[in-house]
Design a protein around this nucleic acid. Sequence first.
DNA 1: TATGAATGAGAATTCATTCAT
DNA 2: AATGAATGAATTCTCATTCAT
Lengths: 214, 214, 214, 214
Amino acid sequence: MTQATSAKVTKLNRVERNAWTKQKIFDAATKIVGKYGYAEASVARITEAAGVAQGTFYNHFENRQELLDQLLPKIGLDMVRFIHARTGTASEARQEIERFSAFFDFIREVPEFLRILNEAEFFAPIGYQKHFDNISSAYVRILQRARAAGATNTFSDEEFEAIVQVLMGARGYLSRRYSYSEQGVTAVPDYVITAYQKLVTRGLFTTSDKGRKS
Amino acid sequence: MTQATSAKVTKLNRVERNAWTKQKIFDAATKIVGKYGYAEASVARITEAAGVAQGTFYNHFENRQELLDQLLPKIGLDMVRFIHARTGTASEARQEIERFSAFFDFIREVPEFLRILNEAEFFAPIGYQKHFDNISSAYVRILQRARAAGATNTFSDEEFEAIVQVLMGARGYLSRRYSYSEQGVTAVPDYVITAYQKLVTRGLFTTSDKGRKS
Amino acid sequence: MTQATSAKVTKLNRVERNAWTKQKIFDAATKIVGKYGYAEASVARITEAAGVAQGTFYNHFENRQELLDQLLPKIGLDMVRFIHARTGTASEARQEIERFSAFFDFIREVPEFLRILNEAEFFAPIGYQKHFDNISSAYVRILQRARAAGATNTFSDEEFEAIVQVLMGARGYLSRRYSYSEQGVTAVPDYVITAYQKLVTRGLFTTSDKGRKS
Amino acid sequence: MTQATSAKVTKLNRVERNAWTKQKIFDAATKIVGKYGYAEASVARITEAAGVAQGTFYNHFENRQELLDQLLPKIGLDMVRFIHARTGTASEARQEIERFSAFFDFIREVPEFLRILNEAEFFAPIGYQKHFDNISSAYVRILQRARAAGATNTFSDEEFEAIVQVLMGARGYLSRRYSYSEQGVTAVPDYVITAYQKLVTRGLFTTSDKGRKS
DNA sequence: TATGAATGAGAATTCATTCAT
DNA sequence: AATGAATGAATTCTCATTCAT
């Protein structure tokens, strides 16, 4: 997540100052929504946290909703990049486990993400849609490539789409159950990983070596 | 779903009248939350739909939140009964598919359920917790019995817990994606069922006949 | 104008208390709009003057505009009654002068009226429309009766409608010019009355050719 | 109405550029107030329409109100010139009808005028005052000359002042009623002209006793 | 127990004006 | 002179809850 540096701002031109202010608001919103949820993220609270006047908010965002709807897609991209960087070249099944694990690593790195993600469906539906379109289309492509490599059981494209919903649902519900507590975001127990691994390696992927990248 | 009959209530004693009023409020809340969501379910709106005064609300519920938190657990029990009634004595794997299908049948029978369920996490967290504890413990027991019958792959109790989260996540995300539209609640396409079936029969259950009830 | 009496309110039932509160708000609005104009009549200001909470306002009026739009028609009726009571049985021409004079008497009795009337077109257009429909249709009927009695020059119904606009315009502009000052509302000079009298009884110009430029 | 030409302005000195910017703002304000009214004429909207920055506004006008108060007097002069050009050398009575008709022609030529005029009383009171002083003093002089020519009935100077208010009120109310619609500004029906003509040449009531109630 | 008016804190948003660049 | 981001007071309206009847 981009972070407005609090370093002394000595010489910024107009454009930079403008962008910096917007980023301050954005970061403040991320922090507040992540910690207290969308419902508590009033413009007053966000601008106070950002250290700007309420009116300033509306120089940068059309309205409160517009900002809220930008939160998830932006952080979602960070997630995609993070997971991609953590995914190696082992077998397709193994890669899926790596992605799964990386997801839980990511939400510990960006603890705001979980709440921003989970509440988005109701409080930022446009952002939610955008994010899920991003994620699920990319995910389907991954599965299609695995299928082309002979690494999956027999699934049609439409079935893959449904499977992706299941896999995303798994992450969502498991993170809710095992990562999320009053204290903050914690790692999931190993048995969560192994359970997922057993389900998808036998259920989704072929267990031969055919899917392994050379 | 229990339904306050609108038939003329001529002879009710004090206790019955009391319960009836409470039920009217409850039913009104179910309808409104189901249709418009928790956020739109103001006390004013609920009491108006119930045909009672706003003040009456507080004779039956401590506050608005208390009512909201009762919605999901109550309707959740209806769901459990519904699904149980639809589950036969075929193989364990087959039974899971029946439960899965029955879930989607239920949400068409009780279209309020989906919204009450999906939004509960944020608007009725206590009710959400109660519901999920109900469901997941029951679900784990089902899986344990299947395991005892030799019908599942090797999973520990803890892994079953995680699996249950995945299966519930699957229902949640799939219903969101495939059942929910502006028009109302519709049936899911067949390929959703088959995708789920492929994933869990190979991933979760053994494919032999060992798990079949005698 | 109805006036919420400030006498001690010892025993009022619910309905009466309700009506009394609404009347308090109404009276406060009348006073404020009359003194400072619609633009300054914020809900905060009105409710403060009425001695009720802001929220109370919305128990009695849908929104701010609804109240504003009720102001003029209500006082307008008071005006009609007032003028009617002051109109005798002299000649039609004389009666018109009486009505004209009575108008200026009325605005001194209800000094709020002038501002409520004049600004209504822009700040309370619905109320303005209602008021003017009331007034002009009644006025046209008066003229038609006078015509039937042979007391007017030759005018068609449509021309009467236009004439009514002129007569109302006369009252509006003259009151603005001669009655309205920082100090409050004062009587119009006699020559305003006589000028109006001459115009409506004899017209402005002689009909001979004397005024033609050579 | 003066109009800032949009032709490319290549060679302007400092003073000319300055005047040109001010004119752009002025024209934009005229257009916006004419179309949407003073209340909607925010500085942001005006400057955007003028194609200058908001801050620029305050280099040319002390504040928003100052500009608004200049609108009507300026355009009012255009009206005076327009009407004067349309007035011939027929009888005084005839000339008044010509002026009256010319007024309605003018508001069709400059459709912004009506709104700028009508709302000015409340949104630009200083400009309103200035305009009406302009108009009414000129109008009184016209009537005085007609009187000197023996073309009017007997009116004192003060009565003429009042008469002028009536005549201006007639224009104001009639234009509001007959020229102004959602579509724009339209011509008034003929009977409006004839009604006015009859009123000012012959008066409204017969002076015989026929109308007296028995 | 039922009623429903009263409460008042808090929400999002607007906008004239300022001022550093 | 031109710019346009920043300001913050003020606006309308909502709603859970209270309480006298």
